[in-house]
Amino acid sequence: MSEGEKAPSGGLASGPDESGAHVPGEPGLWILLFGEMSFFAALFASFLYYRGFDPSGFAEAQKQLSQTVGLINTLLLLTSSLFVAHGVRAVRAAQTSLAPRLFVLGIVCAIGFIACKSFEYYELFDHGIAISDHTFYSFYFGLTVLHLGHVVIGTILLSLMASATRRPLKKPTHFAMVESGACFWHMVDLLWIVIFALLYLVE
């Protein structure tokens, strides 16, 4: 039997073990999360590296972006993360009617994010801005498209979580999967906050 298959003690509470340490999800998950984050960190570093060659050009290109739309998207993802965090708490308390609803609210915010982003792309293309115009736009489109891909994958994960938590979870490993999905979603949120700061706000 693997570690994950210990008999659940007191529902599905996968709280701190004897040593007082609780790894959210499971240790293997962090291969994926740290891998992703270090990869994005490399992208952020190369953005700043290229920005160093042409700070004024980057600042000029940045003016085309709407900080308001960026801020709305930030709020949408933060709200969505809040719903998901409460959703995980509801799953832990075996509230099978509340948990899926919270995840669905998270999905609604995610869809709002995707809609805002599409609107933003449409506006930029409408102004005749092309990816090849400036290194800034290469980074802008590259980073945001990549991040959007993560949002889509995260939304699919949230849908799976919403559907799986309608009934009480049977095994602690199932709870770990829900927690893993939530961790992935929080990472998507965290990455967006850095992207927002770097692309929209840095002066």
Partner: peptide, 9 residues
């Protein structure tokens, strides 16, 4: 998880 990372990237 390693495979999932590969899939995403």
């Amino acid at each position: 998880y390693l495979t999932a990372w590969q899939l995403v990237q």
